[in-house]
Simulated assay, not measured.
Amino acid sequence: MATAHVGVSGWRYPSWRGDFYPHGLPQRLELTYAAERMTSIELNGSFYSLQRPSSYAAWRAAVPPGVTFAVKGGRFITHLRALREVETPLANFFASGVLALGRQLGPVLWQLPERATFDPARLAAFFELLPRSTAAAARLAARHDDKVADDRALTSCEVDVPVRHALEPRHESFDSDEARELCAAHGIALVVADSAGRWPVMRDATSDFRYVRLHGETELYASGYGDASLDRWADTCRAWIAEGHDVHVYFDNDARGHAPHDAVRLVRRLGLPTAE
């Protein structure tokens, strides 16, 4: 049965302390506190560097068993290599501990830089490399190089479950029928990105799930979402769920601390069960 997964992009922000997080809450408990009030968390540290299996295992252990994690793919793949010759970097990424999330692994997010234009051949080649199950990810992870030491690599999975992928392009050339058809042919969800008008908003379904990133309604990364906006997003989520699509929504308007409050308000509008 389709459902919604709602949370924040990252959780370790100093401005949240004493606001969303109570005064005196130990930093080691911040993820638990957030996850008890939401139903999903988007991991973004994985975008900046390869993590460790022990970190993924610790994050999983810190949240209720029903909470999922979306994992942001590495910028080495999307930004530095620009999706070219990335089979080994992909192996390193999946060997770095992603599989430690087990059944709580949600979609993998691939965010492209704003300068990246639509290149169908390059995208198709990248899509074909992406593992579509944890078993396939484990096989790919086994081909890692020495950037992930053998004693820090996880190349097996405790359970074989599907792995979904979402693409967040930030160039207007992706707002085309050709781009949508290519993503649909490979089952890749195009991210619905609300960015105060900065980047194109593409709402077409190109997979069996929807992935939404809310970067700020009127000011990028900074502004919050009012009641009317959250009501509209809740209605949209319900409509997508009625169509049989799982929905993943992550608030990235963290600069002034709005993200966690907005996420909790959307969770409540959707009536999602939490551990709070």
Rank of each mutant, 00 (worst) to 15 (best):
R132H: 03
F174N: 10
D177K: 14
D119L: 02
T206D: 04
P120D: 02
Q111M: 06
D151R: 14
A138V: 01
A184P: 13
D119F: 01
P89R: 05
F93Y: 13
A196N: 09
D204I: 12
I188Y: 09
R170Y: 03
A82Y: 06
A137F: 02
L167F: 00
A205S: 15
A125R: 04
L130T: 00
L109T: 09
L101F: 01
L105F: 00
E168F: 01
R143G: 15
V148P: 00
P200R: 11
R203C: 14
S156Q: 14
R84L: 14
A185E: 15
D160S: 04
E168H: 14
V148H: 03
P120N: 03
V161P: 05
T88H: 05
F174S: 11
R143T: 15
Q104D: 01
K147C: 13
F126A: 09
D150Y: 03
A136Y: 06
E128A: 15
E87R: 10
R203Q: 15
E168G: 05
D150C: 09
W110C: 10
I77F: 07
V192A: 15
A205I: 07
R152W: 07
P89K: 08
L123T: 00
L112P: 01
A82P: 09
D204R: 13
C157P: 05
P131I: 11
L140D: 08
L105M: 12
C183H: 10
E87P: 03
T206Y: 06
C157Q: 10
S173F: 08
I77L: 12
A205P: 08
E158P: 11
V161M: 13
A166D: 13
P162E: 04
S173P: 06
F126D: 07
R164F: 03
R139W: 02
V161F: 04
V163C: 09
V148T: 04
P131C: 01
K147D: 13
R170K: 12
P169K: 11
A116D: 01
R152F: 07
R180H: 15
T117Q: 11
L130A: 01
D208W: 08
V98N: 07
K147T: 07
V163W: 06
E178F: 05
S133Y: 06
F94G: 03
P89W: 06
A121F: 01
A116W: 09
R152C: 00
E172N: 12
A141F: 00
A91Y: 01
F127W: 10
S207A: 12
L90K: 11
A196D: 02
A205G: 10
W110Y: 01
E128G: 08
R143M: 14
F93G: 09
S173D: 11
L101E: 04
F94V: 07
C183P: 08
E178V: 15
R115D: 09
R198T: 14
G97F: 05
L123G: 00
V191A: 08
D204Q: 13
A205D: 12
A138N: 09
G102R: 14
D204P: 06
D145F: 02
D175F: 02
D160E: 07
F94R: 05
R132K: 02
A142H: 02
E128V: 10
A142P: 04
L99S: 06
R170W: 05
